[in-house]
């Protein structure tokens, strides 16, 4: 028996979300009286693989082979299903990120295992296996009972604290049997922005709305984000207007994020926007309309002109950083 956890890598490296996943899988395994087994697909060096042991992986299966550097949903699903079978997995944990959303549903069908996506905590009961997830984009929670012997769960990013343990992990090569005919996804080109903090990874997000008045006013938002080591985001009208790229749109139909700090500047806080950011640990609102709904969701607020407040905010953060 085991809890299997799929740990994706980014050019051979893991990141915080990988360690959150392993921490979660480790704790779930503890509840189930078993241990966590991590699966890594693609070329990851052993010293990097070993890091997964710091967070509770007892065993790490390393799958290497040609064609595994790019995601093919059918191929990766097949690999994970074979690992689940070998390890007699009772639960498989993936991230609720793009990759996890692509693989978990396929795996759920292949293993005939009930899927609960976007979980943020451990199950509230094991018999029946009951786990809470957000529904209606955060307007409610649902208690979901998984009726099958195997469970597939995807964990929301930045929702589970890291758990450090003594590293006893063993690394094993895992030779998955992959039918060459299964590879059907051809990646022709890749476009990547280097050096920027990814919105979904960011612990601090500085976000601008229509109240910023013009795309030319984004300078201080970018400056503040970079000063705080965070990412920039925007509301839907801003991306619809083309002031900022779609990839920055946070809200119900855009990115759903859960940073430690979300600073909303010139954003009124429509219900669809709040759906994307309500999991933030702290929300700061700066808006000139004191009736704006964003203040209902915020922890700290300033009513005033964003153009005047932003430069002062940048200055004050500089001072705190310097002290």
């Amino acid at each position: 028996m085991s809890v299997l956890v799929y740990t994706e890598n980014w050019e051979g490296k893991f990141k915080k979300l990988s360690f959150e996943l392993v921490s979660y899988a480790g704790k779930l395994a503890e509840m189930l009286g078993t241990s966590a087994v991590a699966v890594s697909v693609g070329n990851v060096a052993n010293d990097e693989l070993q890091k997964l042991g710091n967070y509770g992986a007892a065993k790490i299966l390393s799958v290497k082979g040609t064609g595994l550097d790019k995601l093919d949903n059918q191929v990766f699903t097949s690999v994970l299903a074979q690992a689940a079978a070998q390890e007699n997995a009772v639960a498989v944990v993936l991230s609720n990120n793009n990759t996890g959303k692509a693989l978990a549903p396929r795996l759920s069908v292949k293993l005939r295992a009930g899927l609960v996506s976007g979980v943020t905590q451990l199950p509230s009961s094991l018999n029946p296996f009951t786990i809470t997830k957000k529904v209606f984009s955060g307007k409610a929670f649902a208690n979901v009972v998984v009726k099958t012997e195997i469970k597939v769960l995807t964990l929301a990013q930045n929702s589970f604290e890291l758990v450090q343990v003594e590293n006893k992990a063993v690394i094993q090569d895992f030779n998955a049997n992959i039918d060459a005919g299964l590879f059907k996804t051809t990646v022709k080109d890749v476009e990547k922005q280097a050096g920027k903090v990814l919105l979904t990874d960011a612990e601090i997000v500085v976000s601008g709305g229509r109240g910023m008045k013009s795309p030319d006013n984004w300078g201080p938002i970018e400056e503040l984000a970079s000063l705080l080591g965070g990412a920039t985001a925007c509301s839907r009208p801003v991306s619809d207007e083309g002031w900022r790229p779609h990839s920055e749109h946070t809200g119900q139909t855009g990115k759903i994020i859960a940073p430690n700090l979300y600073i909303a500047i010139g954003i009124s806080g429509a219900i669809q926007h709040l759906a994307g950011v309500s999991s933030s640990k702290y929300i700061v609102a700066i808006n000139n309309d004191k009736e704006a709904p964003i203040f209902q969701a915020a922890d700290y607020g300033i009513v005033g002109d964003a153009q005047k407040i932003l430069p002062e905010l940048v200055k004050a953060v500089h001072e705190v950083k310097a002290s």
Binding site: N143, V145, A316
Partner: peptide
């Protein structure tokens, strides 16, 4: 394969702490 056993509503949030626009440093 799964079943929705029930729903809960999120707990209401505490009131927003307001800071004066003349004292951004306090924020």
């Amino acid at each position: 394969l799964t079943e929705y056993a029930g729903f809960e509503l999120p707990k209401p949030k505490a009131a927003c702490k307001m800071v004066s626009p003349d004292n951004v440093k306090e924020l």
